[in-house]
Design a protein around this nucleic acid. Structure first.
Lengths: 343, 343
DNA sequence: TTCTCTACTGTGAACGCTCACAGAAGCACG
DNA sequence: CGTGCTTCTGTGAGCGTTCACAGTAGAGAA
């Protein structure tokens, strides 16, 4: 009975084995592996053949040990995990980032900083250089983890404009203000003039920007501003429902409402139905996000699509560039009005 | 103007620095780091103090290079990514695994094998030893990636019983059959006798088991089997709707229906409402999963809760044990009947 | 005393790779 | 024929750790 390959894993071939197989030195193999500059076509070919024959895969640990890079990045979710994990957009973002990174052969490490303990561990892990950079998802302002990473000089790209952090951190965001402008312009074009709004949380840039876009367009159109037409919500379905009730109470003549998220818009629809208002005949409703909630709603929501697939690929692009030594950058991506049945 | 710490990252302290600081040798520091056997209390203390003072964090690359372990595991999603990414259970699972691993200081690498190209890359990455083991989420049978990993001897833990793979791969699953039994028993206890079923996909173990549990209980109760009472679905909402229509068509006297997923059950509710049947008065409806869809439905669904938090922690436990050299194991976890308004 | 055993500590050699450097070969130019 | 340049190749050192081994000190037994 001879040694078989059942069970334990074989010791993988090293750069040495490849070099011997190809009849060249380690240095030459290494050069081929890293771009192939200053290596003759003949050697290039021999090495590639040897790699294929031996099934060689570079040992990233050995490489990282000497280069100081880890060739991996972290995907860090700091604050309210439930909210994100229930948000379909988060899934799209996570998937998009993973795939965009995979195209560059860069693994993604998922990091959830829930408890204080996890926060500490993750901070140490990152600042110790075990990832080259971090994709940051954190809605709220003044994130201590992000702040610490920024100070340590870790390349950082946030999803959405971060509030507390300085200009040294890159971010990629949808153009909230412009999206809001598009929606309100659309409502105006339908002849609506008493347009209400249920805002998002006003301690987030997104919440602030969407409200700003709403106000701008109304002012530009010469529509009288009316504070009774604005109530604030927190992106939850329930807050949309109560928000709509308050709007109807304070401004019964409202003929349209711009809601800062689709989930809230669902709540608004519920409240309007209960109040006997027809959508869109009596009141037109515009959402924001183009989440699954938009199509699941009845009537299906007219909404603003955020380009989550592009957001994720841009985040990865900016992060890798920054790891490569480029300066931090801010990327604002255009949104798109998706017209359905609610307007 | 002296050197400042703005910009680039500082070179982190090494085990050497700690050794010097503590007045001991590298070996002693290493021993403290790895469990602290054969090291005097005094040295132990000195080293720990030095670690705290210097802010030392072990360089995992150097460690991995010599130990051959990477101290990280992959979370691998192979087949139909959309389905999982829209499934709230998947989120809970991913989060649970990440946190359970974090407690052991083991990073999780997210791997999505969508395209053929990604599949190849991931397989090579894993078999090259860049992760110590894999948490596998793959519903369908005969997964080629999983098969290859199994052959390479990579520790593997599947979520749900895998169909194609042999006994060498561990798995953790909810007790589908028992859950189905509980639900059908519950329906019988309500006096229902004409109990229909909308099954899951019958090429998955879960789909098969839930159907088996349904049949068993009816047989044991002496209720006449009727093929007209069973239709198959694919876990989607739409298939629940059409399934219910076919059931009503074939067996108008149906007084209860067991649906193999909450999402399908939502569709069933829609179809029943359209057909003018009251739930639960005319037809009682039981779901499976206890997903958010269950509480969002009207009436709220009686359903079977799968212990996703325990599933994830068990997957991690089994995987780490297997990496540590233990044999593959199968873990079946109990489900729980959650009674709401639909029965 | 001497020997053995245990508890602890230090040291050199690896792990697999990249990087800097030295050197070789070929070519052009004076 | 030397000199300089470019293109290519091999070599030794070293990245930060762990591991095996050798060695020391102290206690207890013969």
């Amino acid at each position: 009975m001879t040694m078989s390959n059942t069970g334990g894993r074989r010791k993988p071939p090293t750069i040495h084995d490849v070099a011997r197989e190809a009849g060249v030195s380690r240095g030459t193999v290494s050069r081929v592996l890293n771009g192939g500059h200053y290596v003759s076509p003949a050697a290039q070919e021999a090495v590639n053949a040897a790699i294929r024959r031996t099934g060689y895969v570079v040992n990233r640990h050995a490489r990282s040990l000497i280069t100081g890079r880890s060739d991996s990045v972290g995907f860090l979710l700091t604050e309210p995990q439930e909210r994100f994990f229930e948000d379909p957009n988060f899934n799209v973002l996570l998937r998009g980032c993973t795939q965009a990174l995979a195209a560059h052969d860069v693994p993604l490490l998922l990091m959830l900083a829930g408890t204080q303990d996890e926060r500490r561990r993750i901070t140490r892990y990152i600042t110790a250089g075990h990832v080259d950079g971090v994709l940051l998802v954190s809605s709220h302002s003044g994130d201590p983890v992000a702040e610490e990473l920024r100070e340590a000089g870790v390349p950082l790209v946030a999803c959405g404009k971060p509030i507390g952090l300085g200009s040294k951190v890159s971010y990629v965001a949808a153009d909230d203000r412009d999206g809001a402008r598009d929606m309100v312009t659309h409502l105006l074009s339908l002849g609506r003039r008493r347009i209400g709004m249920v805002t998002g949380p006003l301690d987030t840039p997104g919440g602030v920007e969407r409200l700003a876009g709403y106000r701008e367009v109304l002012a530009e159109a010469g529509v009288e501003a009316d504070d009774r037409l604005v109530v604030s919500g927190d992106y939850s379905r329930a807050s949309g429902e109560t928000g709509a009730e308050r709007l109807l109470d304070r401004a019964p003549d409202m003929d349209a409402v711009f809601v800062a998220s689709d989930l809230m818009a669902q709540g608004v629809l519920t409240a309007l139905r209960r109040a006997g208002r027809r959508v869109p005949e009596d009141v037109a409703v515009g959402g924001f996000d183009d989440s699954p909630a938009a199509t699941a709603a009845t009537p299906a929501l007219t909404t603003i699509r955020q380009p989550w697939d592009r957001i994720s690929s841009e985040m990865v692009r900016v992060l890798l560039a920054q790891i490569g030594g480029e300066d931090p950058a801010a990327v604002i991506l255009p949104t798109e009005l998706v017209r359905r049945e609610s307007t």
